[in-house]
Amino acid sequence: MLANTPAPPLLEVRDLCVSFTSRGQVIPIVENISFSIGDREILGLVGESGSGKSITAMALMGLIDAPGVHVTGSARFRGRDLLALPDRQLRALRGREVAMIFQDPMTAFTPVYTIGWQIDEQLRVHQRLSRRQARARTVELLGEMGVPDPANTANRYPHQLSGGLRQRAMIAMALSCNPSLLIADEPTTALDVTVQAQILELMRNLRTTYGSSVLLITHDMGVVAETCDSTLVLYSGRVAETGTTRDLFAHPQHPYTAALLASIPPMSGPRPDRLPAIPGGPPQPMERPVGCAFAPRCAHTHATCLPAPPPRFCTVGPGHTVACVLPAEGAPLPPRSGSSTSPVL
């Protein structure tokens, strides 16, 4: 799978920072995020609302153009830095080599053109196909995404389709130019569970059918476990923990990851009397602690967690790093327990 790739990863993000300026005050939204995605890899970016996961995606796609926003760091995609690319070149890349899908396909499509027209347009601009060729490819794509009766569905407007069909159409549009990287921002959050299962299956199959890598942004640990090869946990704009999904779920090393997994009500086994909830809520970016951002809610907080700078990354296994002082202090968290954890195969 990934064994024969000593070459640089498809996308390598280093020290991505996004900050806003408000009333002369610099508010850091995302701080020093680094990660890489290999060929045909699905990386899950998990975090709560306000953790900076969507902002990260927007920054990578060059979609933040509000005044007063500073984006620093680098994001090397096939040797080119996405963050330093001039608009013209970025526009040629977007849609063709890097595509994005959003949570709400209703607002991502324009309501005044048919689904087919919108997918055709993309093909005509990027691949210089004729109208007829573009439509043939559109129908083919919709069919591959499991849209029933694709030729007729292409002639329908977004509001005439169900949420699941709209999301399929959006994935078809994103894949129309065979991008090597698909950024999917909460693609199943607005969908019902039975439809979500279908879309997740589709995303998993993209690797083999299209050779695409996926950056999957979600807040749902269940979605990550079922879909992603590796996982990056964000908390309050900073990376808390990153590793292969298998390692991270079997042996979460950041107290936030561990507490988050523990607080999800189990679907099997005995029902706990009370859920092990995390007290409080995530901090506002302006009120983010100088040390570990999770310290005020953490059950393991002690003196070394509090002063700046935030804890450095500690490597706890192959590709598994954690921004916490516990492993370095020789007191790592125990492996995840409970009946819902499957034995590591």
Binding site: T194, A197, E226, R246, M267
Partner: peptide, 24 residues
């Protein structure tokens, strides 16, 4: 049965039955 099976579980390597076809 299909509804309970479709719930994504935070467990890696959990059995994943084929999802329900079609939409509501």
């Amino acid at each position: 049965i299909a509804l309970t099976q479709a719930v994504p579980r935070p467990v890696v390597g959990a059995a994943r039955p084929a999802p329900l076809r079609g939409e509501i």
